[in-house]
Amino acid sequence: MPQLNPNPWFSIMIMSWLTFSLIFQPKTLSFISTNPPAHKTPTTTKNHPWTWPWS
């Protein structure tokens, strides 16, 4: 069964992950986000009890 022979495919997988990790990932992470998250203060909601008409 040639599918179970990891000889050619393992080296291809390692080379592709090294290429991705060393070349493409730093280039992708260096981009500046066009919409950075804003620091907002959390707002507290006021809970009002519901008045049921039958009680």
Rank of each mutant, 00 (worst) to 15 (best):
T19Q: 06
I12Y: 01
L18T: 08
F31P: 01
S30W: 00
L22E: 02
P26F: 01
N7W: 03
S55W: 14
P37G: 06
W52R: 13
A38T: 13
W50D: 03
W54C: 07
W54R: 07
W17I: 12
P42C: 13
S21H: 02
N7I: 13
N35Y: 07
P8E: 06
F31Q: 11
L29A: 10
M15K: 11
T43F: 08
T51C: 00
M15I: 12
F31E: 06
P42R: 12
I14W: 00
S55L: 13
W9N: 12
K27E: 01
H48W: 03
P26E: 03
P37M: 02
S33Q: 11
T45W: 07
P53G: 04
K40A: 02
F24T: 04
P53S: 07
I14R: 04
W17Q: 10
N47G: 04
M1D: 11
T19G: 11
M15L: 14
N47F: 15
P42I: 13
L22F: 10
H48C: 03
K40Q: 09
I23H: 01
F31M: 07
T43L: 15
P6N: 03
N5G: 00
L18K: 03
F10V: 06
M1Y: 06
P6A: 01
A38N: 06
L29S: 12
S30G: 07
M1N: 10
F20M: 06
K40F: 07
I14T: 05
T45C: 09
S21D: 00
N47C: 05
T41E: 14
F10N: 09
N7K: 14
T41I: 13
P36D: 02
F31R: 12
P49E: 06
T45K: 14
W54V: 04
N7V: 14
W17T: 08
K27R: 14
P8W: 04
F10G: 11
S33W: 12
H48E: 09
T45A: 15
H39M: 08
M15C: 12
W54F: 15
N47K: 14
N35I: 00
Q3P: 00
Q3N: 09
F10E: 06
F24D: 01
K27A: 08
T34H: 05
K40Y: 05
S30Q: 10
S55A: 11
W9C: 12
T34G: 08
Q25L: 15
M13H: 00
I12T: 07
P42Y: 08
P42S: 13
M13F: 01
W17D: 03
H39P: 03
N35A: 09
H39R: 08
P49A: 04
P49H: 00
M15S: 15
A38I: 15
P2E: 13
W52N: 15
I23D: 01
A38L: 15
P37N: 04
F20P: 00
I12G: 01
K40P: 02
P8F: 01
P53A: 05
P8D: 05
W9H: 09
I32S: 11
M1L: 09
